[in-house]
Design a protein around this nucleic acid. Structure first.
Length: 886
RNA sequence: GCGCGCUUAACUCAGUGGUAGAGUGCUACCUUCACACGGUAGAAGUCGUUGGUUCAAAUCCAACAGUGCGCACCA
């Protein structure tokens, strides 16, 4: 017996084959090989954060991409899976700044200055930037690593600048003083997409202000932010509000700051909701977007009372100056109370925008920023609506369309140092936008950098050598599939589509597969603080990469979130082990590999497993076309475990342990044919173990070099069987029915054993009465499947011997005079009950006249046949019961 | 408020009009010569609720309930 370990050990196998693939350049894409017969297939990786580490989201996402890439190679395509990393502006700068503070290198970035901090970040990137790439390799990712890109590579940076200059010249990028979302923690502007609305338990403060012209009249106002009162520059009411109409044009006294109780105009504005609060709004143009607009309409002053970091400034008055905005809120309320202006305070639920990254409330803030008017919006919107670019699942198209319909200009400048610096220089009133530093003295470059997404939206073509018309770009753009999460549909996907049309005149990808979000088994999002996020590398260490991949894909249905449970990975490992052992069993039988199958020697089980293989090929291929990966794994699992291992291998033992050498050779040929195809079907999901077994079983031996000879990666994807194949091997429904009847009989026979408490280890004798003429081999198979000492053919059994039956024949379990008549009667009575119930159901259906009248003929026929089957069964049971009591 | 999902066995999910399924878990038995990361057998579901369409509904339609997500937002 060959020395094959009983359990599959993934570690050494995975290392060995990954090196082999890399050394043999199996992942390298060559545009020169692309032609009509060998079409291009391409994916660009959603670039992970360069300082990041692999998490379960990456595992899901990249496993899917790898599966697609490997399947495409087996389909004979020239595959480019283009990898890279993202500089992730805020996140990376935060990480490095925190580390530098911890090391005592600096307290604040100003201590170092721009150049020195950037040097540190680059050092950090050089040191840690490769980690996630190495981790992807552990997962088995078949990226073309020779094309690894980074969003801050020199060439990539030039692309970003070129696009900026172009859009600036087209008038689509402009600079302006606007209300933006300001993050007081990161000290930068954010785009609307980076603000997350969260429901808060706040307070609604009611306070009153005195009308200057009518000192007896007080207006009551409700606000959630009393600390901004010093920034108020007016009061607004709805012009249709009868309560306040006569006050419009008059003034009221702003209570805070106490040292500057200004008289503010009362204005009328349609925007005011009569129903809400008291119907009077305090207008704070510097700290609220809607208020800013009202202020603009009525010429109200803009009074900024906040510092960039969220502390109050001197304009807020002596009582509040220097205090943080939340502390100032309490302080302002206290002041109002002191003044006797506070009427009441109510608990109040409202939504507040939070910075996605820093998780603090954003501050609407007036500042000078760069904005982008999206290009190619109509085409980008239409291509998804008309299905030129397909979303999977399709329902995301609606979300996309909705967002594309209400595009707001994109705030693209960030007050950070890590990123692409805005290619604009100033000298006095002069502004220069260009790729190179302008000639002459005194130019100062804009200090801001661009939003990271403002570089990654160029990813699909900027990674392929654009703006040069490279061969790669010509052959691999547009890409075929994009795999990403729906959480970045606006951030990234939508913007790439617009950039694609604007700069390539074509869509960037033909299909977008949206993964679900990985959650823990309780349905909670994975997060560091919850500690519910497993380390994929540790899982790979314990179970193997194939196990992790298979387990993840099996539990990730299209369009639904994935509830991750380590049990799934365990299941993956068990599956690999089963595969390993099935091949080990094959090895133990010896014999030549890949012999020709002789149709005339096929057993019914051989034909059946070929049929089931054909079915599996059909199902898995169809699942791929529909991007239904969990369906594919389910089909593979069922076919391999429940059909091939549970039934076929077991039935083969009748041949392998027998002495018909000719038949044995033929069964081995069938086994090799089935396993050769099975390994190929499994390869995209389980790249490592399939490669190991492909070589171990010698299947690579007589394949052409480029079609599986060197590696299973390039073996042909199994073809769905055609008619001539089915005819040659006699694969038709009768085989399926016969073997189903066999399995049914065997299950019932085993059940008899269990019903009479006979342990499986005890060999017993069955008597079999076939329903027609059958190959004697079938009896041998029954013997093996029933784990019987013997199966004798005939009818010679004592009265009352327990019997079961199927279309194949009847099976008796003689109990050597120890028949327990009562037990058998009870068992049959239970059976009878079940059968009667089914008969009742079918009869009531058939006896319904409108059913007979309106149901299609084949349905009617089927029900009649079912009734006959059940009735026959009832007859048999009754007969047996009669014999028992006779 | 608007939009999009989801609700089927204890759990995770398949199931687009005609016999309710899988995996895990559970129960019992079994270290049998590929595999205990295994085998055999078994128990387990008024398919969220109500109504409608139909000979026939888990499946189609409507309403409701629960749950999750996205967008918008009244200070």
């Amino acid at each position: 017996m060959p020395e094959i370990p009983k359990a599959y050990d993934p570690q050494s196998v995975e290392t060995k084959w990954y090196s082999f693939w890399e050394e043999n350049e199996c992942f390298t894409a060559d545009p020169g090989r692309v032609c009509d017969a060998r079409q291009a297939y391409s994916i660009v990786i959603p670039p992970p954060n360069v300082t990041g580490v692999l998490h379960m989201g990456h595992v899901l996402n990249n496993t899917i991409q790898d599966i697609l890439a490997r399947k495409a190679r087996m389909d004979g395509k020239e595959v480019l899976w283009l990898p890279g990393t993202d500089h992730a502006g805020i996140a990376t700068q935060n990480v490095v700044e925190r580390a530098l503070r911890k090391e005592g290198v600096m307290k604040h970035r100003d201590d170092l200055g721009r150049e020195k901090l950037l040097k540190h970040i680059w050092e950090w990137k050089e040191k840690h930037g490769g980690i996630i790439i190495e981790q992807l390799k552990k997962l088995g990712a078949s990226c073309d690593w020779s094309r690894l890109r980074f969003t801050m590579d020199k060439e990539y940076t030039q692309c970003v600048q070129r696009v900026f200059v172009d859009l600036y010249k087209k008038g689509l990028i402009y600079r302006g003083k606007r209300m933006v979302n300001w993050c007081p923690k990161s000290l930068t502007a954010l785009s609307d997409e980076e603000v997350i609305m969260k429901e808060q338990h706040s307070r609604l403060y009611y306070f009153k202000v005195q009308v200057v012209e009518e000192p007896d009249t007080w207006l009551e106002i409700a606000t959630t932010r009393p600390e901004t009162i010093p920034g108020d520059s007016g009061f607004a009411v709805n012009p249709k509000d009868p309560r306040y109409g006569q006050l419009v044009g008059k003034h009221a006294i702003r209570p805070l700051p106490v040292e500057n109780q200004a008289h503010l105009p009362i204005v009328a504005d349609e925007h005011i909701d009569i129903e809400f609060g008291t119907g009077v709004l305090k207008v704070t143009p510097a700290h609220d977007k809607a208020d800013f607009d009202i202020g603009q309409r009525h010429g109200l002053e803009v009074i900024d009372v906040l510092e960039a970091d969220g502390r109050m400034n001197n304009l807020a008055g002596a009582d509040l100056a220097g205090k943080d905005r939340f502390e100032a809120r309490k302080e302002a309320a206290a002041k109002l109370e002191e003044l006797g202006a506070l009427v009441k305070v109510e608990d109040y639920k409202n939504n507040v925008g939070f910075s996605e990254r820093a998780d603090v409330p954003v501050e609407p803030r007036l500042s000078e920023q760069w904005f982008l008017k999206y290009p190619s919006q109509p085409t980008a919107r239409a291509c998804v609506a008309d299905g030129t670019l397909k979303f999977h699942p399709v329902r995301w198209s609606k979300t996309y369309d909705h967002w594309m319909g209400e595009l707001q200009d994109w705030c693209i400048s960030r007050q950070l140092w890590w990123g692409h610096r805005i290619p604009v220089w100033y000298r006095g009133e002069e502004v220069y936008c260009g790729l190179e530093t302008p000639e002459g003295d005194g130019w100062k470059q804009d200090p801001d950098v661009l939003d990271t997404w403002c570089s990654s939206w160029l990813w699909p073509f900027a990674t392929m050598g654009w703006p040069k018309e490279t061969e790669t770009l010509k052959k691999f753009y547009p890409t075929t599939d994009l795999v990403t999460g729906p959480d970045i549909i606006f951030f990234w996907v939508a913007r790439m589509i617009m950039a694609g049309y604007e700069y390539r005149g074509d869509l960037p990808f033909r299909n977008v597969y949206f993964t679900g979000i990985i959650r823990d088994k309780k349905g909670r999002k994975m997060s560091k603080s919850l500690g519910n996020s497993p380390d994929p590398l540790e899982l790979i260490g314990r179970y193997g990469a194939d196990a992790l991949r298979f387990g993840t894909m099996r539990s990730a249905p299209l369009g639904l979130d994935v509830l991750f449970d380590e049990k799934d990975v365990e299941l993956g490992r068990n599956f690999c082990n089963k595969l390993w052992n099935a091949c080990r069993f094959r090895e133990m039988q010896g014999g030549a590999m890949e012999g020709e199958i002789r149709p005339e020697l096929l057993t019914s089980d051989d034909r059946w497993i070929l049929l089931r293989l054909g079915q599996a090929i059909t199902e898995v291929t169809a699942a791929f076309e529909a991007y239904r990966f969990s369906d594919a794994t389910a089909s593979l699992y069922r076919f391999f475990w429940s059909e091939y291992c549970d039934w076929y291998i077991e039935s083969c033992k009748a041949t392998f342990f027998g002495d018909n050498e000719t038949r044995k050779a033929n069964v081995l040929a069938v086994v090799d044919f089935v396993m050769g195809n099975t390994l190929r079907l499994f390869h995209p999901f389980l790249p490592f173990i399939t490669e190991e077994l492909w070589h171990g079983l010698g299947y690579s031996g007589d394949m052409p070099e480029e079609q599986g000879g060197k590696t299973i990666m390039t073996a042909n994807w199994p073809k769905v069987f055609d008619n001539s194949f089915n005819e040659l091997y006699g694969l038709d429904d009768t085989v399926d029915r016969l073997v189903a009847a066999k399995h049914d009989l065997v299950t019932q026979g085993r059940n008899l054993r269990a019903a009479y408490n006979i342990p499986f280890s005890k060999k017993i004798d069955y008597t079999y009465n076939p329903a027609g003429v059958q190959d004697s081999h079938e009896v041998e198979v029954l013997k093996v499947l029933l784990n019987a000492e013997s199966v004798s053919v005939g009818l010679d059994v004592p009265k009352g011997t327990p019997r079961v039956g199927s279309a194949l024949g009847d099976l008796y379990l003689p109990l050597e005079g120890l028949i327990d008549f009562d037990a058998e009667r009870e068992r049959l009575a239970r059976e009878l009950q079940k059968v009667e119930k089914e008969i009742g159901k079918v009869e009531s259906k058939l006896s319904n006249p409108s059913f007979a009248e309106r149901a299609p003929a084949e349905v009617l026929e089927e029900q009649r046949r079912r009734l006959a089957d059940w009735q026959a069964k009832r007859g048999q049971i009754n007969e047996a019961l009669e014999k028992l009591s006779a």
